[in-house]
Amino acid sequence: MSGGDSDAALLSIRGLRVEMQSDAQTATVLNDVSISVSPGEVLGLVGESGAGKSVTGAAVIGLLEPPLCKTAGEIWFEGRRIDTLSPRDMRRLRGAGIGMVFQDPLTALNPVFTIGRQLIETIREHTGMGHGAATERAVELLDEVGIPAARDRLRSYPHEFSGGMRQRVVVALALAGHPRLIVADEPTTALDVSIQAQVIALLVRIARELNAGVILITHDMGVIAEAADRVAVMYAGRVVEIGPVAEVLGSPRHPYSQGLVSSIPNIGTRVDILPQIPGVMPRVGALPEGCAFHPRCQKCLPVCTQTPPDQHILANGVGVACWAVSGPPQ
């Protein structure tokens, strides 16, 4: 297992494989993805667009839909296998055990109902509380996520809130069923920096105070650096590097992570040309043989063009899937 003790894990994804199956073709979208999250831990998931971050998140919350389907692997949550649950049990778990936050707060909120009505209904659905108790809980939750004058704001409509406030309401909705795990897929991408900082701080606080696990999917490495405890870097459907954030961002070992980290513009470090990784990530269904990164890799060895590298755990606890790091197979 990769960079975490899966016995103590809240969530553990083991050898997950997801395929896209259509009449025309079958293609691998996720391959041998193994990730674990402990209570109170924020795990960052980064990687190029199309790398499989959202599909991983969708698999965890049981929202894989055709043409995507899981063809291998297991997902365990609090000691229980959840990838085989019935849709009904999964829906119940989504409300009560696992919460979700998506990129666009407007699609998660219904514009024609008040914030209060949406919160209260969600709370009642997940907890079976009466209207009065649910209203109190709604006020509490809005308070929790830092909405001032929470009781008055129950009567507000989504459009009367700013982007950051709306996203905090979505977080409040995700918290309604007392989740122990929150999957946040690009929760701040639509927000600007000042509001982004508020939402990230909120998610980190929830992880710490409520001892919940958080999977934070984003392509903003700055956000990962500040919020995550561990980070998994994905490329073409695989986890290529996973470990403590200081190690992975501070001294990345996989050539793709190295390229990713060095291509980030930084305030104050002026360069004429940003370092860039040449080429583009291969598309699903057109993966090259061997390591999927090899056509873009400057450290490519002969073995890389033939055999995909296994994950190799380094002394510092970082897992890396790269022949140049682990040495070619014997």
Binding site: S194, A197, D220, E226, A246, L249
Partner: peptide
Amino acid sequence: IKTVPNVDAIGRTSAPLSGEV
């Protein structure tokens, strides 16, 4: 400028700008 998430700021959550837009 102070609230920009920074890759060099590992583990240091920037103080969010208080107040609402």
